[in-house]
Nucleic acid binder design. Sequence first.
DNA 1: CCAAGAAGGTGACAAATGTCATAGTTCTCC
DNA 2: GGAGAACTATGACATTTGTCACCTTCTTGG
Lengths: 230, 230
Amino acid sequence: MENSRCENCIVRQFNSLRAMSKEELKKVSDSKTTKTIKKGELLFEEGEKLNGVFCVRNGVSKLSKLSANGKDQIVKLATKGEVIGQRSVITEESANLSAMAVSDMELCFIPKESINTTLQSNPNFTLEVLRHMAHDLKEADDVIVNMSQKTVKQRVAEAFLYLKNNFGEDQDGFLILTLSREDISNVVGTATESAIRIISEFKKKGLIHTSGKKIGIRDEKKLQELVDGF
Amino acid sequence: MENSRCENCIVRQFNSLRAMSKEELKKVSDSKTTKTIKKGELLFEEGEKLNGVFCVRNGVSKLSKLSANGKDQIVKLATKGEVIGQRSVITEESANLSAMAVSDMELCFIPKESINTTLQSNPNFTLEVLRHMAHDLKEADDVIVNMSQKTVKQRVAEAFLYLKNNFGEDQDGFLILTLSREDISNVVGTATESAIRIISEFKKKGLIHTSGKKIGIRDEKKLQELVDGF
DNA sequence: CCAAGAAGGTGACAAATGTCATAGTTCTCC
DNA sequence: GGAGAACTATGACATTTGTCACCTTCTTGG
């Protein structure tokens, strides 16, 4: 079908693939395979060699790293339009993160050969990838600062605002991306119980409301003030 | 003098500039200026627009970000051979970090024009820069995990091992790069008093020895075990 | 539809870390 | 070479966060 061709793929507009030439895109499209992944399934695991990258057409994947004490730290949530695994393909190292679907996903797998040849011949593409990676690096720096300088409470509040801004809310005012309490604690970098406690507290103070595992933001301004330190 | 030409510069071997052609290097060399910076002086500050990148010939610079509560978080220590400021030049954003000399420094300033034209025309160079950035990103991911999953004690121990491995020790067994207690706490992401307390504890346990602000590693194995969680 | 397991929730307590006060030490610059 | 500033050090205490134990509530597969 026509819309399964990269040339016509909308999500491409959001990532580095837009810098590819028509011919390069054709090659990529011919070599790619489309995959459907159910919530909770692994895309790849830390330490695995990646033979290509994943381009997210739909759904969300968490990128996380297991620490020595057995806890996962979620480093990034990748959604529609984002490319996963490029870092490993570029450095030809095995993956430093695991990728697991947080919701049902649809994605394209692009073998590394198509990527590498374009990287070596099309400076515009390489530059575009570089810009994206520079952006990711800046975000990572920000996360480092937040981790070390903000309290768990502030980080939880920030996470909710992030989820709202990046994934939106439904008509009932609930965050569209529903994470388990454990995932939330792994984003924030804290114990699950601590995250739950803070969620309860926010609920009592009227900052958020919940329904099952769904969470909705009720007072964005106050949450933001909390993040900024009153 | 001859050794002030990029073509002959040794530190170039360690960074992306080695992927430049002879002609490109000549242009860079003609446009660059050499600077000497004293310990404690600022290279640039968060929010500043950078008109180029800095290539470190000697000395060490800390890259840090100010958090809302007034504390600095040191995100990276850049030393001989490393290029500072490339991220901002690539994304054409203002700097997200401040750079301050931790020791006396000698460095070259390369105007962004020389960099940008090469980025657009020499895929090898762009790819090389990309590889370096991919490496930095991986390191940043690791730092995030450490920050959230390791105790302050583990992070202090890790910092000392890092300083030994990256900057070495002198004949008396002291770390060559001497940081103030405050800088150490800003690398680790903790209060200065906490860092000092842990240093005292390590000293008592015979893991390190000190002389003034100088610190030497006495039991590397035990420190490593501590980092790994016993 | 129900049992079993997973996920959510809470209390009590322990451990880690931050804060404030204060004193000793080293460094720097005139 | 000494006064003042900046840095290092330590105690006492408050706060934050983690851990363990236990219960409740969902969810899901047979």
